[in-house]
C-alpha cells in the first residue's frame, strides 16, 4: 500500500462526523452507538497505518466499550436528554477551543515537527534491528511490550487492575463492615 492518504482522510472525516453526532444527539443510546461507530472506524484506520496488533485490540475493546456503555444507559429509564442547551456556555467554549486549535496549528506548522510519513525512529531503530536476534520474537511490537519495555507493561497492568478493582468496589451491593456490625 503506497499511498494511504485518501483512505485515511475518509476515515478521519467519518470519525469527526460520527463524533459530532455522538456529542449533539438528544438520545443517550444514539450517542453510545455513534461513538462505537467512531471506534470501529478507528480500528480500520489502524489497519491502514500498519498496526494490525492495535487494530485487533481496538476491535475487541470497542465491543466491550459498547457493552459497558449500553449497560450504563439502556437499563435506566431516564435516557433522553430533554433540557435545552446553554447557549452562552456553548459559544464561550467554542471560542476557547477555536483558540486552542489555532495556536496548536501555529505550533505544529512552524517548528521542526516531523511531517506525516517521516518518523524520527531514533530509539526504534535499535528495536527493529536487534528485536529478532535479542528476543527471538518475530513481532517487534510484542518484543517491545514484553521484553524491552516490560516494566512499562507491568505498570500499566497495575493501573488496569486498580481501575477494575475500583469499579468492582463501587458496584458492590453490600459492604463488609456492615455485615460484621449486623452479626455482632
Amino acid at each position: 500500500m503506497e499511498n494511504i492518504a485518501p483512505q485515511l482522510y475518509t476515515l478521519l472525516v467519518f470519525m469527526v462526523v460520527g463524533s459530532i453526532i455522538a456529542i449533539e444527539t438528544k438520545n443517550l443510546l444514539s450517542a453510545v452507538i455513534s461513538v462505537s461507530a467512531v471506534g470501529f472506524a478507528l480500528s480500520i484506520a489502524f489497519l491502514f497505518l500498519g498496526a494490525p496488533d492495535i487494530a485487533i485490540t481496538q476491535l475487541v475493546v470497542e465491543v466491550l466499550v459498547l457493552i459497558i456503555l449500553i449497560r450504563g444507559t439502556i437499563l435506566l429509564d431516564n435516557t433522553a436528554i430533554e433540557k435545552g442547551r446553554d447557549t452562552l456556555a456553548m459559544v464561550a467554549s467554542l471560542i476557547f477551543f477555536g483558540m486552542i486549535l489555532g495556536f496548536g496549528a501555529l505550533i505544529f506548522g512552524s517548528t521542526g515537527f516531523p511531517a506525516f510519513g517521516e518518523p524520527l525512529m531514533r530509539v526504534s531503530k535499535v528495536y527493529v534491528q536487534t528485536g529478532l536476534p535479542a528476543t527471538y520474537a518475530a513481532n517487534i511490537v510484542a518484543s517491545i511490550i514484553l521484553d524491552f519495555r516490560a516494566y512499562d507493561t507491568l505498570g500499566e497492568a497495575t493501573v488496569l487492575f486498580a481501575s477494575i478493582l475500583g469499579a468492582l468496589a463501587i458496584l458492590r451491593r453490600t459492604g463488609k463492615a456492615g455485615e460484621e456490625v449486623v452479626s455482632a
Binding site: L49, G50, A51, D53, I54, T57, Q58, V61, L64, V65, I68, L69, R71, G72, P119, M121, V123, S124, Y127, V128, G131, I140, V141, I144, I145, R149, D152, T153, E156, A157, V159, L160, S163, I164, G166, A167, I170, L171
Partner: peptide, 25 residues
C-alpha cells in the same frame, strides 16, 4: 513503521477500557 508508539498505544487502549468501566460504574 515505528513500533514504539504501537507498543505504548496497545496498553493505553486497554487502560482506556478499565477507566471507562470505572466511570460507568
Amino acid at each position: 513503521v515505528d513500533p514504539l508508539p504501537q507498543a505504548l498505544v496497545l496498553t493505553s487502549i486497554v487502560i482506556g477500557l478499565g477507566v471507562l468501566a470505572l466511570m460507568v460504574a
